[in-house]
Nucleic acid binder design. Structure first.
Lengths: 110, 110
DNA sequence: TTCGTATTACGATGCCTGTCGTACAAGCCG
DNA sequence: CGGCTTGTACGACAGGCATCGTAATACGAA
């Protein structure tokens, strides 16, 4: 019997705000997370994405992304699977996510 | 003879960074400035764009936008004319500015 | 040169945020 | 059960930032 519900709050589509999304993307670590998730089919666990920060800080960044509406998080066992809310974002801000990911990826290849 | 050079520092194209641009756009006031500039042909003076903050704060936001490479600023008399660096931004981050402006404009019409 | 307009500079303030360490919880597996 | 993996909660800290008020500067016009 879990004492904590392990349920993660996600904003509804109409609660996603442009400024919050832009702010969430305006960080190197979070951009790295988003860039990685864009390359996966069904999302990835936090542990699969190597970041140059401690796990505490990683948790913080995942939360910022989730609360801004950029990613979806679900528990699978002890792991937490992250995936991009591509459809929701593309409905709200057509082309935005694609152009950010494309620019971030192009730069990381230099 | 001006004691101060009245020359405004702008980043070169290769000095414009994605994170800085996203951060610059992740603020309601600055988004409002960008949205307004997108509707003008040849830019606009600071005084033409009404913001719900004092002029000191306005100056701060214009500087953030300029230093991030989002806008260009030139003096014309006492006025300072602002314009979007659309071409530079579109070269670096194709589609980004357009999708942000489009999303901001669509929302402001609701 | 004096006045008015447009904008900046500087200092202060309070909040936000990225970072960490330590301690803890949830779930799998032997 | 006991350990291992994965991730969280909490507190702390430093730096960044949006905001303001006041004083000052640059330029054009009278």
């Amino acid at each position: 019997m879990p004492t904590h519900m392990r349920v993660l709050e996600h904003p509804d589509v109409e609660e996603i705000h442009l400024e919050a999304v832009l702010h969430a993307l305006a960080d190197p670590m979070r951009l790295e997370i988003v860039r990685f998730l864009a390359t996966t089919e069904d999302g990835a666990a936090c542990s699969e994405i190597e970041l140059a920060v401690t796990k505490s800080t990683g948790t913080h960044h995942y939360r910022v992304l989730r609360e801004a509406g950029v990613i979806n998080q679900v528990y699978r066992g002890t792991a937490k699977i992250n995936s991009l809310r591509s459809t929701d974002l593309d409905t709200l801000f057509p082309g935005l996510l694609a152009s950010v990911i494309s620019a971030a990826t192009r730069r990381s290849q230099r």
